[in-house]
Computed example of a mutant assay.
Amino acid sequence: MSLEQIWGLDDRGRTAWTVKGADHGVVFSVQGPTPKTIAAVDGPRLYVAGQAMPTTANLNLHSTVLGAGLADGKDASVATLDTPPNGGAMFLPGIRDGRAYVAVMQGEATRPTGYGIWALDLASRKTAWFHGGEPLLENFALPPGGDGLLIGDTGHLTGLDAKGAEAWKQSVQSLAVGAVGRYAVVVDTSGTLTVLDPATGNKVWSLPGVEGAALRGGAVAADPDGSVLYALLRDGDGRHSLAALDSASGMKRWTALLPPEDAKSTVVRARLLYADKTVYRMDSGAVLWAFDPADGTPRWKYTGMEGTDPVNLAWAAGDGRLCVSDTAGTTVAALHANGA
């Protein structure tokens, strides 16, 4: 799917500004079979990953990151990765300390030879480093409290150091990879959540009976300082509980039994966010829930997206708002943190 422009909406949902990719020689698109995040915010600017538009002289795609002012869409600039040969950006896992980390396809778009991570210095718009040669990239964790990062596929977890070199590698069948404070988190196919030291790969603690992430991610959420981790636990009777875990020890601070989901819902998967002293959950029927992070008490639920395929729903929270977008249509819903 190719995206032609970026839309900036005001507090009432009206179009405040747009940035057309064609005006800057780029196409905003995400490659691969599952939905991926292609944008991130750093300070006053928005950054979106994409590809340079092919020309008659060069039909190959090249990964790009377009930056623009978050308030008005102005002062747009583009950084391009033209070596090694690459088939364009797949997703933008995150930004940390002035660097954007972009997952890219190596080789030609129609004949990929591998996958890699592009570390882009946003101030200079120059490549800090490139790590390539991965057979597949599905999951990514960027612990905010350190220099390393973690990449994963269905067979392996790999820890990279601050220069993009491989620090360690493990054989793990992962459903989700995340970051909580200074730790990395992985949920494997058996439903075991393991917290790791991202620098060494050493296990800090683990807990069985945890739901993996939905295709849009979000297996775990955490409070701002990373001291508390929130996860979805499987109960023996087919129900689920929301749990608050101490990120350093794995000790359960509390568990709260969740309301049963509609019998028509598809397979339950975790989809969690934390913002504005609220834990948000999207269930498998696309119902949005807000919980008190102190004890898991439900505060409110929103059913405006109910019946929509959750795979098509992107969401973000912060600054007192929860925003949800149907990527298969044109619907965007913005809710106050109190549910209004």
Rank of each mutant, 00 (worst) to 15 (best):
Glu4Ile: 04
Asp10Phe: 03
Asp11Phe: 06
Arg12Tyr: 11
Arg14His: 12
Trp17Ala: 08
Thr18Gln: 14
Gly21Asp: 09
Ala22Cys: 01
Asp23Lys: 06
Gly25Val: 03
Val26Asp: 04
Val27Leu: 15
Pro33Arg: 04
Pro35Phe: 04
Pro35Gln: 08
Ala40Gly: 03
Gly50Pro: 04
Met53Lys: 13
Thr55Gln: 07
Thr56Tyr: 03
Asn60Met: 10
Ser63Trp: 09
Leu66Ile: 09
Asp75Thr: 03
Ser77Thr: 09
Ser77Lys: 14
Leu81Met: 15
Leu81Gln: 14
Asp82Leu: 06
Asn86Ile: 10
Ala89His: 05
Met90Tyr: 02
Ile95Leu: 03
Glu108Leu: 15
Arg111Val: 02
Thr113Val: 13
Tyr115Met: 03
Gly116His: 01
Gly116Trp: 02
Ile117Trp: 01
Ile117Glu: 10
Trp118Arg: 04
Leu122Val: 04
Arg125Pro: 01
Ala128His: 05
Ala128Leu: 08
Phe130Thr: 08
Gly132Gln: 04
Gly132Glu: 07
Gly133Ile: 11
Glu134Val: 00
Glu134Met: 07
Leu137Gln: 09
Gly145Glu: 15
Gly148Ile: 01
Leu149His: 07
Ile151Pro: 01
Thr154Pro: 00
His156Trp: 07
Leu157Ile: 04
Thr158Tyr: 01
Thr158Ala: 13
Gly159Phe: 12
Gly164Phe: 04
Gly164Asn: 11
Ala167Gln: 09
Ala167Arg: 14
Val180Pro: 05
Ser190Lys: 11
Thr192Ala: 10
Leu193Phe: 10
Thr194Asn: 11
Trp205Tyr: 14
Ser206Thr: 14
Ser206Ile: 01
Leu207Tyr: 12
Pro208Thr: 13
Pro208His: 09
Val210Gln: 09
Val210Lys: 01
Gly217Arg: 06
Gly217Lys: 06
Val220Gln: 03
Val220Phe: 00
Ala221Ser: 14
Asp223Arg: 13
Ser227Tyr: 04
Val228Lys: 12
Tyr230His: 12
Ala231Leu: 07
Leu233Tyr: 02
Gly236Trp: 01
Asp237Tyr: 09
Leu242Tyr: 09
Leu242Asp: 07
Leu245Ala: 08
Leu245Tyr: 08
Asp246His: 07
Ser247Pro: 12
Ser249Tyr: 04
Lys252Tyr: 08
Arg253Ser: 14
Trp254Lys: 06
Ala256Asn: 15
Leu257Phe: 01
Leu257Tyr: 00
Leu257Asn: 10
Pro259Ser: 12
Glu261Arg: 15
Glu261Gly: 08
Lys264Ala: 13
Ser265Asn: 12
Val267Phe: 14
Val268Phe: 06
Val268His: 00
Arg269Gly: 03
Arg269Cys: 11
Arg269Leu: 03
Ala270Asn: 08
Arg271Thr: 11
Leu272Ile: 02
Asp276Asn: 10
Thr278Tyr: 10
Tyr280Arg: 02
Ser284Asn: 11
Gly285Cys: 10
Val287Thr: 13
Trp289Ala: 00
Thr297Val: 12
Thr297Asp: 06
Pro298Ser: 07
Pro298Cys: 09
Pro298Tyr: 06
Pro298Lys: 10
Thr303Phe: 02
Met305His: 12
Met305Ile: 13
Glu306Ala: 11
Glu306Ser: 13
Gly307Trp: 06
Ala317Val: 12
Gly318His: 11
Ser325Asn: 10
Thr327Gln: 15
Thr330Arg: 13
Thr331His: 08
Thr331Gln: 09
Thr331Gly: 02
Thr331Lys: 05
Val332Gln: 07
Ala334Asp: 11
Leu335Gly: 00
